[in-house]
Amino acid sequence: MATGGRRGAAAAPLLVAVAALLLGAAGHLYPGEVCPGMDIRNNLTRLHELENCSVIEGHLQILLMFKTRPEDFRDLSFPKLIMITDYLLLFRVYGLESLKDLFPNLTVIRGSRLFFNYALVIFEMVHLKELGLYNLMNITRGSVRIEKNNELCYLATIDWSRILDSVEDNYIVLNKDDNEECGDICPGTAKGKTNCPATVINGQFVERCWTHSHCQKVCPTICKSHGCTAEGLCCHSECLGNCSQPDDPTKCVACRNFYLDGRCVETCPPPYYHFQDWRCVNFSFCQDLHHKCKNSRRQGCHQYVIHNNKCIPECPSGYTMNSSNLLCTPCLGPCPKVCHLLEGEKTIDSVTSAQELRGCTVINGSLIINIRGGNNLAAELEANLGLIEEISGYLKIRRSYALVSLSFFRKLRLIRGETLEIGNYSFYALDNQNLRQLWDWSKHNLTITQGKLFFHYNPKLCLSEIHKMEEVSGTKGRQERNDIALKTNGDQASCENELLKFSYIRTSFDKI
Rank of each mutant, 00 (worst) to 15 (best):
H290D: 03
F73T: 15
M125C: 01
L102T: 03
L99D: 00
I84K: 00
L327P: 15
S112P: 00
R298E: 07
R69S: 06
Q61L: 08
K292W: 07
C280Q: 01
K310D: 13
V265D: 14
N195F: 04
G95I: 02
G183H: 13
T320C: 12
A156V: 09
L44I: 11
D75P: 04
G95N: 07
S161I: 07
F91P: 00
R145C: 06
C228I: 02
L102Q: 00
I222S: 06
A198N: 14
C235Q: 00
T320Y: 05
I306V: 05
L99V: 11
G183V: 09
R141W: 12
W210K: 05
E238L: 05
V55W: 02
P271Q: 03
V206I: 02
F103H: 00
K67C: 06
C301R: 03
N257W: 03
F73L: 13
M321L: 05
L164R: 04
D169R: 14
N135Q: 12
L44T: 11
L29N: 10
D288E: 07
L155M: 14
K100N: 15
E180A: 07
A156E: 03
T107S: 11
L81F: 01
V34F: 15
K224E: 10
T45I: 07
D178P: 04
Y272V: 05
Q276P: 03
P104L: 01
K67R: 12
E33C: 06
D248K: 04
N150K: 08
G262V: 02
Q245K: 10
P316I: 06
H302V: 10
L90N: 00
A156H: 08
E180F: 07
L128C: 04
G227W: 11
L327T: 10
N282Q: 10
G95P: 00
F283Q: 03
C215N: 11
G241F: 02
Q204N: 14
P270W: 11
P330W: 05
M125S: 15
N202R: 06
F91Y: 14
T211F: 05
V265L: 05
G262Q: 08
R110T: 07
H302W: 14
Y134T: 08
E33R: 13
M137Q: 08
D39Q: 15
P70F: 08
H48P: 11
Y171V: 11
C234K: 01
K100H: 14
P246G: 08
D169L: 07
W160D: 01
C228R: 01
H212W: 13
D184Q: 09
M321E: 03
H236S: 11
R297D: 14
F78Y: 12
Q216T: 06
L102H: 01
G32N: 12
Y154N: 06
P271G: 13
E238S: 06
V126I: 04
D184P: 05
R263F: 02
P36S: 13
K148S: 09
E124H: 15
N295P: 03
R256C: 01
G32T: 02
D165F: 14
C239Y: 00
S98P: 00
S244I: 04
V265W: 02
K67T: 11
Y273P: 02
E33A: 04
F283Y: 10
V265E: 02
R113I: 06
D159Q: 09
N149Y: 00
D159W: 14
I40P: 00
P220C: 03
V34E: 05
C234W: 00
L90M: 13
L99M: 08
R141N: 08
T250G: 07
L164H: 08
Q245T: 07
F275G: 02
L102I: 01
C209V: 01
I139M: 03
M83P: 00
G183N: 06
Q299T: 11
C268V: 00
Y94A: 05
K80F: 05
P70C: 12
T199L: 11
E314H: 03
E124S: 06
M83Y: 07
H28L: 13
T194R: 09
N170R: 12
K80N: 09
Q276V: 12
K217I: 15
N42D: 06
T107R: 01
G111Q: 00
Y87Q: 00
N179K: 13
E49C: 07
I146Y: 01
P197T: 04
V121G: 06
P220F: 13
G142T: 00
K224A: 10
L155W: 07
P336G: 04
D86K: 15
I158Y: 06
C301N: 06
S77Q: 14
Q287I: 07
E57C: 14
D72A: 01
E147T: 15
M83L: 13
R110P: 00
L29R: 15
Y171F: 06
Y87F: 06
S324W: 14
V206Q: 15
I158W: 04
S284T: 06
V218E: 10
C153P: 00
M137S: 10
C196R: 10
T250F: 13
L128P: 00
T229N: 11
D248P: 01
S317A: 04
G241E: 02
C196K: 03
L88F: 08
C182I: 04
G37H: 11
C215V: 08
Y304G: 06
L106F: 02
N42L: 05
P104D: 00
I109R: 00
L106C: 01
T189K: 14
E207L: 11
N149H: 02
F116W: 14
T250S: 07
E168S: 15
E238I: 02
F116S: 09
C234V: 00
C252T: 04
C215Q: 12
R110N: 06
R162E: 07
L63M: 02
T157N: 05
R256W: 03
L96A: 10
K193N: 08
P220N: 03
C243E: 00
D261H: 14
M125P: 00
N52P: 11
T140G: 05
G111A: 02
C234T: 01
T45M: 08
L240K: 04
V200Q: 09
T68S: 12
C196V: 12
R162I: 12
K310T: 04
L152Q: 03
L102A: 03
R297H: 15
M65L: 05
K100G: 07
E33N: 14
C35S: 00
I139K: 00
R279W: 06
K129R: 05
C280L: 00
G227K: 02
C264H: 00
P187N: 05
R162G: 04
G262S: 06
G192R: 05
N135E: 02
K176V: 15
F205I: 06
C196S: 14
I146Q: 03
N242K: 03
R145Y: 15
Q287K: 09
N175L: 09
T68F: 11
E151V: 10
D288F: 15
V167M: 07
S324L: 11
H236R: 03
Q303R: 07
G132S: 14
L174R: 09
P334W: 14
M38A: 10
F285H: 09
N149R: 01
T229E: 04
T320S: 05
L120W: 03
Q245M: 14
A190F: 11
D184L: 08
E314V: 05
C335S: 05
V305C: 13
K80Y: 15
L233P: 06
R141E: 10
N149A: 08
F91I: 11
N202K: 09
C182F: 12
F78V: 11
S213F: 00
R297N: 12
N202Y: 08
D288Q: 14
V265Y: 02
G241P: 01
I185N: 12
P316V: 05
V281W: 00
D72M: 14
T194A: 12
G37K: 05
Y87L: 00
V206L: 03
N105V: 04
G318H: 05
L96V: 10
L155H: 15
P270K: 04
G241R: 11
S225E: 07
V218L: 10
L89G: 00
L89A: 01
R208E: 05
P249Q: 09
I56A: 00
G300D: 11
C53V: 03
C209I: 01
I222P: 09
R256P: 02
K176Y: 08
G132D: 03
F205A: 02
L96W: 02
D177P: 11
L155R: 06
E124C: 07
R110Y: 04
M137E: 09
H290A: 04
I84V: 04
D247K: 05
T329Q: 15
E314P: 02
C182Y: 15
N135C: 05
V253L: 15
P313V: 04
I306L: 07
G300C: 06
T85C: 06
C293G: 06
T267E: 07
V144H: 00
Q276C: 03
G37R: 05
H302E: 08
C243P: 00
A119N: 02
K224I: 08
Y118P: 00
R145A: 12
C264S: 00
T107L: 03
H302D: 08
E180P: 06
I185D: 07
H59L: 01
L233F: 05
G300F: 04
D178Q: 08
T189W: 03
M137A: 09
